[in-house]
């Protein structure tokens, strides 16, 4: 039973990171109909920048983390301004490819600067297990989970109660209507990229703290896709729930299915099988808008 709870807790934690990163993905999609394939690379480079700041500036992991968020915001604005803004009316394919291109550039930067080896954050939390009654969990997991919740709640409140949040929701629900009442769409797109960069960087720093940093961190970006499809491409609440579900599927799949079937790597693949099944039976996902175009 401990095995089960261990996997479940792990799944929920990983899933909450997916949910947080998926928030950025869905936000960009809703605001500008861009599928951001560079999300994972943003996550990866965020983690590396934070690591570099920790070692170079000696300001502690928390201080470095905050500074990382600022730097990542600047980077997001640059990406939006220099590249994506010029691609506003380009076909879907070009936009997808341009985000892939950006991702490749970011990955090559990481490989050139930090190399392919695994790097580690300094141990800044004493790693003591906490007894939750039914299972013991490493304290760093609890910190991570809480951080994810704080970020998601923070953005939830931001969208709900601030004027900027309202403007972003307006632009996401209808670009034409929003523009006709004077919403500056460019600024909304830029802001969506900033939010995406921030949540990605946060996800990257959290996973980097748990498992160390390799360029493989960028795989997190694509693991968000199943969550996004399961939740519904345009539903933030849906993807948040779906992120956790996908995390749990991944862990239980990796744990139990491997024992039953003898196949390795099933955990990583299982979410994508779920993605295909969802497309077969319920393409709008759990909570997305039903959009059957071009039938």
């Amino acid at each position: 039973m401990d095995y089960f709870w261990g996997l479940l807790i792990n799944g929920v934690l990983v899933g909450s990171i997916y949910s947080m990163v998926a928030l950025g993905f869905v936000l960009i999609y809703k605001a500008s109909k861009v599928l951001n394939f560079a999300q994972g690379e943003l996550l990866m480079i965020g983690a590396y920048i934070c690591l570099e700041l920790v070692y170079q500036l000696q300001i502690g992991v928390l201080g470095a983390f905050l500074l990382t968020l600022v730097l990542m915001s600047v980077m997001a604005i640059l990406i939006e301004r220099l590249v994506l803004r010029r691609m506003m009316n380009a076909p879907v394919m070009s936009v997808v490819m341009v985000t892939i291109g950006i991702g490749i550039i970011l990955r090559s930067i990481v490989l050139l600067v930090w190399g392919p080896i695994t790097l580690h954050f300094p141990a800044w939390i004493r790693d003591v297990p906490v007894d939750l009654g039914f299972v013991r969990v490493s304290v760093i997991y609890i910190y991570s989970f809480v951080t994810c919740l704080v970020f998601m709640a923070g953005f939830g409140l931001f969208f709900r109660y601030t004027r900027t949040g309202l403007v972003m929701r307006a632009a996401a629900s209808s670009q034409v209507a929003a523009r006709s009442v004077g919403v500056p769409l460019h600024r909304v797109f830029a802001l969506a990229w900033v939010v995406a960069a921030i949540v990605s960087a946060a996800g990257g720093v959290i996973t980097g703290n748990i498992a160390g940093l390799t360029p493989e961190l960028s795989a997190y970006g694509v693991r968000v896709f199943p969550a996004v499809i399961l939740g519904g491409l345009d539903s933030i609440v849906g993807t948040t729930i779906a992120g956790v579900i996908i995390g749990v599927i991944e862990e239980l799949g990796g744990g139990y299915l491997r024992d039953w079937t003898g196949l390795s790597g099933l955990g990583t693949v299982a979410p994508f099988i779920v993605l295909i099944i969802i497309l077969w039976i319920r393409p709008q996902g759990l909570m997305g808008t039903k959009e059957v175009e071009r039938l």
Binding site: V92, V269, F272, I276, L279, E291
Partner: peptide
């Protein structure tokens, strides 16, 4: 892999083929 997404907009097909890439490679 592609049949369900042929009914949907192109974005779904991109994600479905992405899943196909991962699943087939595995």
């Amino acid at each position: 892999f592609g049949l369900p997404s042929l009914r949907l907009s192109g974005i779904y097909l991109i994600l479905a083929t992405f899943a196909a890439q991962i699943i087939l490679y595995w």
